[in-house]
């Protein structure tokens, strides 16, 4: 599967652009799509979490391709370091069956499949229609973290504070919801 996409990408790639980037993108994208589909289809919850790690790591790799190194590092630390661990805790605490003894897919999965296919068709059509052959700048440089932090702490200071308050309230809310009483 990976090879077909790779070949596809290589054929479409502009000769000026570094082929390596496209190859990397293709491989990572293939892994991500495969893993994402496994996340929503596998009948083992722990496997789902593992595949989720693959998707998240792939996204981080894509961020590096796009020059967003700080976001990529944050992605790895927060998502893979914290959120997935949280998921594993959730799985253990709810003692969900590890094996596929239980049904994990609802009866109306067909509606879901239909929905996502329709949505994907609409999205892809619009994207191809709207952005066509738009190219990313060829000389993508990694973003300076200093620039990023300046933006966060000046232009986006208020949203940043709001996010802090949101995290705090989520913290308290999670405790309140989950505690035994």
């Amino acid at each position: 599967m990976g090879f077909t996409i790779l070949a596809e990408v290589a054929r479409n790639a502009d000769a000026d652009v570094l082929v390596a980037q496209n190859v990397a993108f293709g491989i990572i994208a293939a892994i991500m799509i495969f893993s994402a589909i496994r996340v929503v289809t596998t009948s083992n919850v722990v496997h789902a979490a593992a595949f989720l790690v693959m998707v998240l790591a792939g996204a981080a790799a894509q961020f590096i391709l796009l020059g967003a190194e700080f976001v990529a590092v944050t992605q790895v630390m927060v998502y893979i370091g914290a959120i997935v661990v949280l998921f594993l805790f959730g799985i253990m605490l709810t003692r969900a069956p590890m094996q596929g003894t239980e049904k994990f897919t609802r009866d109306n999965w067909k509606v879901g499949a239909l929905t996502s296919v329709v949505m994907l068709a609409v999205l892809v059509f619009t994207l191809v229609d709207g952005f066509g052959e738009d190219k990313l700048p060829a000389d993508l440089m990694p973003t300076d973290t200093r620039v990023l932090s300046d933006a966060i702490f000046s232009t986006y200071l208020v949203p940043f504070e709001v996010i802090s308050v949101l995290l705090l309230s989520a913290l308290i809310g999670a405790i309140v919801i989950a505690r035994k009483d």
């Binding site: 799509i33 994402a36 589909i37 996340v39 929503v40 919850v45 789902a48 998921f87 959730g90 799985i91 709810t94 969900a96 049904k103 994990f104 897919t105 609802r106 109306n108 999965w109 509606v111 879901g112 499949a113 929905t115 996502s116 296919v117 949505m119 994907l120 999205l123």
Partner: peptide
């Protein structure tokens, strides 16, 4: 995104 939407609609386990 569409994979995620499919998962949200058709998974039974809350964690999933």
């Amino acid at each position: 995104f569409c994979t995620g939407v499919y998962g949200v609609i058709s998974r039974r386990n809350g964690v999933l």
